[in-house]
Design a protein around this nucleic acid. Structure first.
Length: 555
RNA sequence: GCCCCCGUAGCUCAGGGGAUAGAGCACUGGUCUCCGGAACCAGGGGCGCAGGUUCGAAUCCUGCCGGGGGCACCA
């Protein structure tokens, strides 16, 4: 809001000064936030741009613009500084409005609807249902779910989907692997097939199935038995996955099974568009036409469709349901398949930009100096559940969200556990709990909060109070940026700053005092901060506790 | 060999073309008669290298070096 208003003022000044400056075109007006406090609350670099375009001294341009700046009750001070920046200091009255906004909007503070609303489909996790989720999927889940929440907050209609890969070779291998473990239990000589699933999970699955069905599967014909076991095993694995995701506060709206997709129809459609052809007994997609290194197989020479063919069918299915934008959340190890799928989207007649791929770098688990192996085949993985057990869902989820998706995460379990006191998530949650505690204390002292209409915000003049207001005022913009950049991690940094501003305020300013008017103003500032923290944590999928246990060490 | 990501403080990471590059951890020293000390304040230290674009580059482009990941008729 404030930025838009400032941009309007600057634009008006440029229009006014246009002739004087000999300017043909009004450049785009950007309002930025200076890093240095002495440079005011907001700044415009437009004079630098005009200076470069016209050959005039930017400082003189800035002075001329300031002279033409319309009056506004928003601006308390304007200064020309540095090489030609115009620095604005915002009037306190405008900062106080944020309190009113938060009181009025409550949980909705931070939401906006300025952008054109789109129907967005976020597909994430989509781990194969052949075992428990591992930590990499945890990052996928955290990023995808938070991104969905953030996109929803800026006004999009968002659906979250999990693609269940329940067909093809790996499903068969899964069935055969369970079968081997099942037969083993009856002393039958059987072994997990080459490339199959040798992990402990499959052993447990077989045991559970034996417990329920006894030896009744021994007589079932092999093919039928394997198919049944594959289906049964996947259902059980999906149940476990669902439970794990719920623990992480992840919501999935829809589970789409590969087996339910019409792969033949998709391949047909590519064929009719002359984007597929036969060679060496296989059917190929002309991926090279779309910038991929080479053409890609859709149907193998043995008649089986590839994973990629199913991806094409799913793509058709998704767009066919009327989504404007598809977001795929993928591990970076899948980056090589992006080109061909984008090509397919284009080839099938969709806007290439309609399919976006968020590639997150991998998660490396460590315990101190010891790397934790993550080879599923060797069955040595630390499952996501085990991680949640060790560090807790909030800390796990928050930690997985703190980094840009472009950065690999070194997740040291020992560190997140042993230094949980210093974990940023607790710092933020503590601020929230601390505020709740202060409000409770005030009530105990016989000073419950009065309605906002009776509060005089002008009591808030301390520098830490104004800083906190400025930070709160910035919240909606931070959400918009996180949405635009598809970058949930931005909000972890923001919320840490917000918590820090509160702690500073709290250290400097006593909230509950004899001064009734000041007390009310500070209580409302605190409550607004609490709401702001809660709203951001909600977007991150992390809880905002009313109180936290005191730790021994703290006493 | 080709493709993607990264290289910023001792460590882990922020930094949307702008002014004096920030935070946490670690280290050193401080702060409270009082609302939650899981807090606050202060201090030291840094943009891999070389070019280029720009009034202005940590940021954009090219090359090189270093680290990670990927290059199937696997998923």
């Amino acid at each position: 809001m404030i930025e838009l208003e400032l941009a309007r003022l600057v634009r008006a000044a440029v229009e006014e000064a246009r002739q004087e400056l000999g300017l043909d075109q009004v450049p785009e007006i950007e309002i930025t936030r200076p890093r240095q406090k002495q440079h005011g609350d907001h700044a415009s670099n437009v004079a630098l741009a005009i200076g470069a375009a016209t050959g005039r001294n930017p400082r003189e341009v800035a002075e001329a613009l300031v002279a033409h700046l319309p009056d506004s009750d928003l601006v308390a001070k304007v200064e020309v500084a540095g090489p030609g920046f115009i620095n604005f200091t915002v009037a306190h009255a405008w900062l106080y409005r944020v309190l009113e906004d938060i009181v009025r909007q409550g949980e909705a503070y931070g939401r906006s609807s300025d952008e054109p609303a789109e129907r967005v489909l976020v597909e994430f996790v989509s781990a194969n249902p052949t075992g428990p989720l591992h930590v990499g999927s945890g990052r996928n889940a955290a990023v995808g779910d938070s991104l969905a929440r953030i996109l929803d907050a800026v006004g999009h209609t968002v659906e979250r989907e999990y693609y269940v890969n329940d067909a093809g070779t790996q499903a068969e291998l899964f069935g055969a692997s369970i079968e081997a473990r099942y037969l083993e239990r009856f002393g039958v000589d059987a072994s997990v097939p080459e490339g199959g699933y040798a992990g402990q999970y499959v052993v447990e699955l077989a045991a559970a199935i034996e417990e329920e069905l006894g030896d009744s599967l021994l007589e079932v014909p092999e093919e039928e038995r394997r198919e049944w076991l594959a289906r049964e095993g996947m259902e059980r694995a999906l149940t476990d996955i669902r439970t794990t995701l719920e623990r992480m506060n992840v919501r999935i709206d829809r589970w789409v099974h590969q087996s339910g997709l019409d792969v033949d129809a998709a391949v047909d459609r590519l064929r009719k568009a002359d984007l597929a052809y036969e060679r060496d007994g296989a059917v190929w997609f002309r991926a090279e036409q779309f910038g991929d290194e080479k053409d890609r197989v859709l149907i193998r020479s043995n008649g089986e469709p590839t994973y990629f063919a199913a991806d094409c069918a799913y793509l058709l299915d998704k767009f066919g349901r009327g989504h404007d934008r598809l977001i795929y959340v993928w591990g970076a190890d899948h980056h090589g398949t992006v080109k061909r799928l984008q090509g397919a989207a284009q080839g099938l007649g969709f806007d290439v930009d309609g399919a976006e791929f968020i590639l997150y770098q991998l998660v490396n688990l460590r315990r101190g100096d010891e790397p934790v192996r993550m080879s599923r085949r060797r069955g040595e993985i630390i499952t996501l559940d085990e991680l949640l057990d060790e560090v807790g869902p909030d800390a796990a989820r928050y930690t997985l969200l703190t980094r840009s998706t472009d950065t690999a995460i070194d997740f040291d379990i020992e560190l997140v556990k042993s230094q949980s006191l210093e974990n940023p998530v607790y710092y933020v949650q503590y601020a929230h709990a601390r505020i709740a505690s202060v409000i409770r204390y005030a009530e105990q002292q016989g000073v419950p909060m009065v309605p906002f209409e009776q509060v005089d915000p002008e009591e808030l003049v301390h520098e830490t109070e104004l800083d906190l207001l400025r930070k709160l005022a910035d919240l909606p913009e931070q959400v918009r940026v996180a949405a635009a950049l598809r970058a949930p991690y931005r909000l972890t940094h923001y919320t840490e700053e917000l918590a820090a501003d509160f702690h500073r305020f709290y250290t400097e300013c006593r909230v509950v005092t004899d001064d009734a008017s000041l007390t009310q103003a500070r209580l409302h500032l605190s409550a607004a901060t609490k709401q702001g923290i809660a709203n951001v944590l909600a977007l991150l999928g992390v809880s905002a506790p009313e109180s936290m246990e005191r730790l021994e060490e703290a006493g």
